[in-house]
Design a protein around this nucleic acid. Structure first.
Length: 228
DNA sequence: GCGACAG
DNA sequence: ATCTTGTCGC
C-alpha cells in the first residue's frame, strides 16, 4: 500500500517529530557562528551509505590541509532507528557517524559534513548537530537545496550566490566546477560562512565535491563491499 | 490550501 | 540514500 510520501517509507510518528522539533529549538540556542580561531592543519570529511533498509555505514577520512593528503580512514557499521524525514536527518545518521569518529586516532580541527549546516529550517542540519555534540568546528556541503531561495550562480568555477531564508544568508551556493551543478556550503558550528566557503573552494581540486566529503563518499562505497 | 523537502 | 544501461565529455 502506498503511503503517498516521496520515499515510500512509513509516515513518521507525529508525536516524535514534535518532540524532536522541540529539541532542535532548544539546541538552537547553543549554536555559535563565528570566525574559527584554529590554525587549520587537519580536516576530516564524513559521509554515510546504507546497507539494506535499516543498517548504516559511516566513514571519516582525516587529511592534511591544505595539502589534502589522506592520513586516516575509519568506518562504523550499525543499525538505523528512524526513517528519513527532511529536517530530521541528523537523528537518523549522526549516532553512527559519532561512533565512526571515535575510531580516529588523531582528531581534526574541522569536520566537513555531507549535508547542510545552518541552512536548515531550525538551523540544525546534520553538520550543526555533529558540531554541537563534539564541541568542534563543522561545516556542511550539500548537493541539494533544503530551504531558502537563491539566484543561480554564474556557470564558471568559483562563482557564488547567497542562499537566503527568512531574511538571512544561511549558505553560499558555490560553483566548484565549470558548467556543473553547484554545492550548498554552510557553517555548522564554531564556524562562519566566509571561512566555510573559502575552505570548500580550496578543497575542490578537480571534482564537484571538495576532497574531504568526496573521499568519504568514495571510501563508503569501498568499505561497503567489505561488509557485505 | 498548495507545494517543497539534505541523505 | 538506493535501484540501474548506456552514453557524453575531459
Amino acid at each position: 500500500m502506498a503511503y503517498f510520501r516521496r520515499h515510500d517509507t512509513p509516515p513518521p510518528d507525529p508525536n516524535l517529530l514534535r518532540e524532536l522539533t522541540e529539541l532542535q529549538n532548544k539546541m538552537q540556542q547553543r549554536i555559535i557562528i563565528q570566525k574559527p580561531d584554529f590554525d587549520l592543519k587537519l580536516i576530516a570529511g564524513c559521509d554515510s551509505s546504507f546497507i539494506g533498509k535499516d543498517s548504516i555505514l559511516s566513514v571519516f577520512v582525516l587529511m592534511t590541509y591544505p595539502e589534502l593528503e589522506v592520513l586516516e580512514k575509519v568506518w562504523h557499521h550499525g543499525p538505523v532507528e528512524l526513517p528519513y524525514v527532511p529536517g530530521f536527518l541528523a537523528f537518523r545518521e549522526a549516532p553512527n557517524l559519532l561512533e565512526a569518529y571515535k575510531k580516529l586516532d588523531q582528531k581534526p580541527d574541522l569536520i566537513m559534513v555531507d549535508g547542510h549546516g545552518i541552512s536548515h529550517p531550525r538551523r540544525l542540519g546534520i553538520a550543526t548537530h555533529l558540531g554541537l555534540h563534539l564541541d568542534k568546528p563543522t561545516m556542511g556541503v550539500a548537493k541539494k537545496l533544503l530551504v531558502g531561495k537563491y539566484k543561480e550562480p554564474a556557470t564558471t568555477k568559483g562563482s557564488i550566490s547567497p542562499l537566503e531564508y527568512k531574511g538571512e544568508v544561511i549558505a553560499n551556493v558555490l560553483r566548484t566546477k565549470d558548467n556543473i551543478k553547484p554545492v550548498f556550503v554552510s557553517p555548522g558550528h564554531l564556524m562562519d560562512l566566509e571561512s566555510a566557503t573559502e575552505i570548500a573552494f580550496n578543497c575542490a581540486i578537480k571534482h564537484k565535491l571538495p576532497e574531504p566529503t568526496r573521499l568519504a563518499d568514495h571510501y563508503a562505497a569501498v568499505f561497503k563491499k567489505e561488509v557485505k
